[in-house]
Simulated assay, not measured.
Amino acid sequence: MSANPADGLSLEFSTDPGEFLDTAGGYLAADPLVSTVVTTVADRARAQQAAGVTQPERDWWLVVRGGGDAVVGAAMRTAPFAPYPLFLLPMPEEAATALATALHERGEEVSAVNGALPAAERCAAELARLTGGKLVVAQHTRLHVLEQLVQPERVPGRLVAATQAHADLVMEWLTAFMGDADEQAGRPRGSSPHELDPHTVARRLDAGELWFWVDDAGRPVHLTAVNPASFGVSRVGPVYTPPEHRGHGWASNAVAEVSRRVQAEGVRVCLFTDQANPTSNKLYAALGYRPVVDMANLLVIR
């Protein structure tokens, strides 16, 4: 479905991730680091669709075209948890405004917008204006890319793949991760919307995307996840160490080893940090991760 806002811009909505990737591929490939969330989700959705998995009817993808039919922006709404935030990649500010208008006109309720600045903020601000709401920043995030890996001080233990036998522990730790991240950033526990799907965890376990660091006794003490490569980029996260196991260097060693393995495959590796969490930002900087772009998770409160 297309919408024509003005100034030569057009908004093209699609429910087909394959169609979206075919159309926006050149735009996404031009900056695969910034596009990492969208490309990872779209690639996964396309594979699931090919396998006969039905996508939620609410999911959509967006291509923004400018003058001369060139793709100048992209977005998606595919989050599996309420309030189903939008995710915007860089686009002209007038396109971000036009997206808010188009969603409002078709009666699509939107109370959360994530993604690249300033596009995400412009879209959220216009949604707030149209609905009489208030724009609130829920989280400032920062995308980092690993340049030269700096090996941390070695600690006892090793990296091992999590399996289906660990599903309950993985669910427990990933659930705790969100609450702990809120507290470490000075936010109320549970203020970051997220919902774990056991089927998603099971799929990630089968795909080998979840790794434990185990101590000398073989006991899991840390969990690091990594997403499959898309457009030559793989994204690490989430990364979680239970409180009772912190301060031993498990996280540094696990992230370093996962990152080393990704780079050994000729793939660039990146990750997101919460700008309000000094611990994680310091850890990743010490490993050689460098900032790429700032993003934000925004709420429209009525």
Score class of each variant (00 low, 15 high):
Arg44Val: 15
Leu9Arg: 01
Ala24Lys: 01
Val41Asp: 06
Thr39Ile: 08
Gln55Arg: 10
Asp22Met: 14
Asp22Thr: 10
Leu21Gly: 08
Val34Ile: 15
Gly26Lys: 13
Thr54Leu: 10
Gly26Gln: 07
Asp59Val: 02
Trp61Met: 03
Gln55Gly: 03
Gly68His: 12
Asp31Thr: 10
Thr36Cys: 15
Phe20Asn: 00
Leu62Pro: 00
Thr54Gln: 13
Thr40Ile: 05
Thr40Ala: 11
Ser10Lys: 02
Arg46Gly: 01
Pro5His: 02
Leu11Ala: 04
Gly68Ile: 12
Ala29Arg: 15
Asp16Val: 04
Leu28Tyr: 12
Ala51Val: 04
Asp31Arg: 15
Asp31Ser: 15
Thr54His: 07
Leu11Lys: 03
Gln49Asp: 13
Ala6Thr: 09
Arg65Ala: 07
Pro32Leu: 14
Gly68Leu: 10
Met1Lys: 09
Gln55Thr: 02
Tyr27Pro: 13
Pro17Arg: 02
Arg46Asn: 04
Gln55Ala: 14
Gly66Gln: 01
Ser35Cys: 14
Thr39Cys: 08
Asp16Phe: 05
Ala47Val: 09
Val63Tyr: 00
Arg46Leu: 06
Glu19Asn: 12
Tyr27Trp: 13
Arg65Lys: 12
Gly67Asn: 09
Val53Glu: 09
Gly68Arg: 12
Phe20Gly: 00
Leu21Asp: 03
Asp31Glu: 15
Val63Met: 03
Thr54Ser: 12
Phe13Lys: 02
Gln48Arg: 15
Ala47Tyr: 12
Gln55Lys: 05
Arg46Val: 02
Ser10His: 00
Leu9Val: 05
Thr36Ser: 14
Ala3Leu: 08
Ser35Asp: 10
Gly67Asp: 13
Thr40Leu: 08
Leu9Ser: 00
Val53Ile: 12
Thr40Gly: 13
Pro17Glu: 03
Ser35His: 12
Asn4Gly: 06
Asp7Ser: 05
Pro32Met: 12
Gln49Trp: 03
Ser14Lys: 02
Arg44Lys: 10
Asp16His: 03
Trp60Cys: 00
Tyr27Ile: 05
Thr15Cys: 02
Ser35Lys: 12
Gly18Leu: 08
Gly66Thr: 04
Ala45Thr: 05
Ser14Thr: 14
Pro17Trp: 06
Arg46Thr: 04
Val38Asp: 05
Val63Ile: 07
Ala24Asn: 05
Leu33Phe: 11
Gly52Leu: 09
Asp31Gly: 15
Asp31Met: 14
Ala47Cys: 07
Ala29Trp: 13
Pro32Asp: 13
Thr39Ser: 14
Ala30Glu: 11
Thr36Trp: 05
Pro5Val: 01
Glu57Pro: 02
Ala51Ile: 03
Gly52Met: 08
Val34Gln: 11
Arg44Met: 07
Thr40Pro: 02
Glu12Tyr: 05
Ser10Ala: 05
Leu11His: 03
Gln49Pro: 08
Gln48Pro: 06
Leu21Pro: 03
Leu9His: 00
Val38Ala: 10
Arg46Pro: 00
Arg65Leu: 06
Val41Tyr: 04
Arg58Thr: 00
Ala29Phe: 13
Gly52Cys: 06
Trp61Lys: 03
Ala45Asp: 14
Arg58Gly: 01
Glu19Met: 06
Thr23Trp: 14
Ser14Ala: 06
Phe13Ile: 04
Pro17Cys: 06
Gly18Arg: 09
Glu57Cys: 02
Gly26Pro: 05
Asp22Phe: 11
Leu9Lys: 01
Asp59Gln: 07
Asp7Phe: 01
Ala47Phe: 06
Leu28Lys: 14
Glu57Met: 01
Val53Lys: 11
Val38Ile: 12
Gly66Met: 01
Thr40Tyr: 10
Leu11Glu: 00
Pro32Asn: 14
Leu21Ala: 12
